[in-house]
């Protein structure tokens, strides 16, 4: 319940305040969002599996975001930021798909 409420409140706040993303953050924000989404899907799946652990969720959430941002940062420094961003998004996308598939199996039994 808390995560859903938090998400809804966050979306509302973001829409209301509509802040401008600072320039230095612009390359990392979308990657960080995707990484966090991955963590949330993973947490939801773990919850359905009955193995949800708040500590693991929090740590995985934060580390997901930090590592994704770090990879993009490193890629920027190496001159391959765009490619590494794509790589991160692809990997996270695959993981989100996998988690979504597991959730689907739980919810629809199919």
């Amino acid at each position: 319940m808390i995560p859903i409420l938090g998400l809804a409140a966050g979306v509302l706040l973001g829409l209301v305040f509509d802040p401008t993303v600072p320039l230095w953050l612009q390359p990392y924000l979308p990657i960080a969002v995707v990484a966090a989404l991955d963590a949330v899907f993973g947490g939801f799946r773990a919850r359905l599996d009955g193995i949800f652990d708040a500590k693991v969720f929090v740590i995985s959430f934060v580390s997901n975001v930090v590592v994704a941002a770090l990879i993009v940062f490193l890629g920027d420094q190496l001159g391959v930021g765009a490619q590494l961003s794509t790589a991160v998004v692809v990997v996270l996308g695959i993981r989100i798909f996998g988690n979504a598939a597991a959730i689907r199996r739980h919810v629809f039994r199919a």
């Binding site: 808390i2 938090g6 998400l7 966050g10 706040l13 989404l37 009955g50 708040a54």
Partner: peptide
């Protein structure tokens, strides 16, 4: 794990804050 989640207000707060941040960043992005 299932039972531990209920007992930990700190974890619940952290989860709430993190998901709030996620929603915020999502909307902004």
């Amino acid at each position: 794990p299932a039972r531990r989640r209920r007992r930990d207000p700190l974890a619940a707060t952290l989860i709430g804050v993190l998901t709030l941040l996620l929603g915020f960043a999502l909307a902004v992005q």
